[in-house]
Each structure stands twice: as structure tokens, then as C-alpha cells.
């Protein structure tokens, strides 16, 4: 595919004699750089991942699978799926709308708007949870009204959903904005001039153009939604079997000295991360050109 043409194959393109093309480096430099990259990534990324699986299987496959039959862990998995199923579609709709409005139009204060969309990205997860406690907690102005109407937000599922939405807020929008900016509006203008309605233009022209970027955004958003710890920890109340998500369940198991089970649940999330990444790599492999522009976060 495309990398065959773009990337210099060290075995194929470099002539056998001690001559190096002017646009690449000497073999020893190349090897050193590859070595540095591999060692660095090994120390920082690969080993932690490996450790999760080693610890999860430390006491054998039986103990590993036993961890998933625990009632509380099962309810944590269900809750995590539920939260992601609510948070991701909401952020998806928002992401498309925001990207449309940012990419297709020029208006004053655009950088400011993008920064606001980015903001949850850099807000400490602890703060993300805290803002909802301050807003909906019993001590807030809204607290007594909510209580009088028997509406539970924090320390219940809605609060966990809100915190998750906050944390994963920018993911899809951030994925789509550069992609749609690169693509410009020519296709849409053509469709409109041929008499298509706005909605038709969006579903038949824009959506097919951005579908892979969109999917990638959804995958990352979903992985992050399922894995969020700090923010959810603040709003959850940690009621076992009721308001604990998978990352919180991992913490509880770890705190009960049940390390194997903790790492088993963690391996499930790591697997999710891996599946996400494999899926993404397949997408890139098949739709490399379309996705090339989307790699900016």
C-alpha cells in the first residue's frame, strides 16, 4: 500500500555499498533511532500493558475467569456499558454539530469556541467530577429542589453519565474538525446547487466523507468513557454493585487485596483498548488516505 512507496525500505532501497542517500540517514543512525524508539516505548507503554496480563493470569486461567462471575463485577461491567451507551451517542451528535459549525463557517471567536470545546481535555478529572457535585449536590442551590422531586443525579447513574460526558466531551469533535476543515465545502456546495436539501447534503455527501474519522473518534471516545476513573470516582458514591463502574471496581478489588481479580477486570479494559487500536489500525490500513488528516488530537 501507500507506505511501500513513501517509506524507505532499509533492505530494498539503500544500495549495498557504503553510500547513503542524501534524504535518509546512515544505517547505524537508523538502527540507533529505531532502537531508542523501541526501548522507550517498551519501557513506557508495552511493559505496563504486559504486566496487566501477567498479573491477571498469575493464578491461572480459572481464577482469571472466576473474577468475571462475581456479581458486583458483573454489575460494574453492565453499568460501564450503559454509561458508554448514553455518553458516546450524545457526544457523537454534539461532535458532528460542532465540527460542522466550526469547519464550514468563518466567524469571529472561532479559536475561542474551539478552546472551550478543548477545555474538558485539560481539566483535572477530579475537578470534572467536583463541578457536578457543586452544581447538583445536596448543599447546592439546586439540591433541595432535586431532593423534593426525588431526582437523584450525583451518587447515581445520571451523575456518572454527566461526568463521563464531560471527560469525553472533545474527543469526537476534535477528530472531525481538522478532517472537515481539510475537506472544505466544495462537495456540499455542489450537492446544494443540484437541489439537495441541507439534510440530504449532510447524510449523502458529508457523512460518507467523514465516516471513518467519525468511527475512529467514536472508538476513542468509547474507550475513554469506559476507562474514566477520577471524575467518576467523585460522583459515584461507591455503592457496591450499584454505582461502581469497571475502573472503580478495579480500585475496590485492589483495596481488598484481590489483585488477581483487579487485574482481570483491568485486562478487560486493556483488551478493549487493544481491540480499539487494532480496529483503528485496520481502518487506517484500508482507508489510509482518508484518515491521514485525522490524526491530530
Amino acid at each position: 500500500m501507500y507506505d511501500e512507496e513513501v517509506i524507505y525500505d532499509s533492505r530494498r532501497l539503500v544500495p549495498p555499498e557504503e553510500h547513503t542517500r542524501p534524504t535518509t540517514e546512515r544505517p547505524w543512525v537508523r538502527r540507533t533511532l529505531i532502537g531508542i524508539a523501541v526501548v522507550f516505548m517498551g519501557l513506557v507503554l508495552v511493559l505496563p500493558l504486559l504486566l496487566v496480563f501477567v498479573e491477571a493470569f498469575r493464578k491461572g486461567a480459572e481464577t482469571y475467569f472466576a473474577a468475571f462471575s462475581d456479581r458486583n463485577s458483573q454489575s460494574a461491567i453492565t453499568l460501564t456499558l450503559l454509561v458508554a451507551a448514553i455518553a458516546v451517542p450524545l457526544n457523537l451528535v454534539f461532535g458532528v454539530a460542532a465540527a460542522w459549525c466550526v469547519a464550514k463557517y468563518e466567524f469571529w471567536g472561532k479559536s475561542f469556541l474551539i478552546t472551550l470545546i478543548d477545555l474538558p481535555f485539560s481539566v483535572s478529572p477530579v475537578v470534572s467530577g467536583m463541578v457536578y457535585v457543586l452544581l447538583f449536590g445536596a448543599q447546592s442551590a439546586l439540591g433541595p429542589i432535586l431532593k423534593a422531586n426525588h431526582i437523584e443525579i450525583i451518587f447515581a447513574v445520571p451523575g456518572i453519565v454527566l461526568a463521563t460526558i464531560f471527560v469525553t466531551f472533545p474527543f469526537i469533535a476534535r477528530e472531525l474538525i481538522p478532517l472537515m476543515e481539510d475537506q472544505g465545502s466544495v462537495d456540499e456546495e455542489a450537492a446544494l446547487s443540484l437541489g439537495a436539501t441541507g439534510w440530504q447534503t449532510f447524510t449523502r455527501v458529508t457523512l460518507p466523507n467523514i465516516k471513518w474519522g467519525l468511527l475512529y473518534g467514536v472508538l476513542l471516545c468509547n474507550a475513554r468513557a469506559m476507562g474514566e476513573f477520577g471524575a467518576v470516582s467523585v460522583v459515584s458514591g461507591h455503592i457496591r454493585g450499584k454505582t461502581t463502574t469497571m475502573p472503580l471496581d478495579i480500585e475496590i478489588l485492589y483495596n481488598e487485596y484481590n489483585f488477581t481479580a483487579a487485574f482481570a477486570i483491568a485486562s478487560l479494559l486493556a483488551m478493549l483498548a487493544l481491540v480499539t487500536l487494532v480496529f483503528k489500525t485496520i481502518l487506517e490500513f484500508r482507508f489510509g488516505d482518508e484518515l491521514a488528516g485525522t490524526r491530530r488530537h
Binding site: 524508539a37 523501541v38 516505548m41 507503554l45 508495552v46 505496563p48 500493558l49 504486566l51 496487566v52 478529572p125 476513542l220 474507550a223 475513554r224 469506559m226 476507562g227 474514566e228 476513573f229 477520577g230 469497571m246 475502573p247 478495579i250 480500585e251 485492589y254 483487579a262 483491568a266 479494559l269 486493556a270 478493549l272 483498548a273 487493544l274 480499539t276 487500536l277 487494532v278 483503528k280 489500525t281 488530537h297
Partner: peptide, 20 residues
């Protein structure tokens, strides 16, 4: 290697902390 670069986006931070 290319795929693994995105791992920190997807791995829960608490798991990363415990593992590290």
C-alpha cells in the same frame, strides 16, 4: 508500535497507575 502509541488514550488511568 504505531498502534500501541494510542494506548494511553484508551487504558484507564488507574490501571496505568497501578501497572506503572
Amino acid at each position: 508500535l504505531d498502534a500501541i502509541v494510542d494506548l494511553p488514550f484508551a487504558l484507564p488511568t488507574a490501571v496505568a497507575g497501578i501497572a506503572l
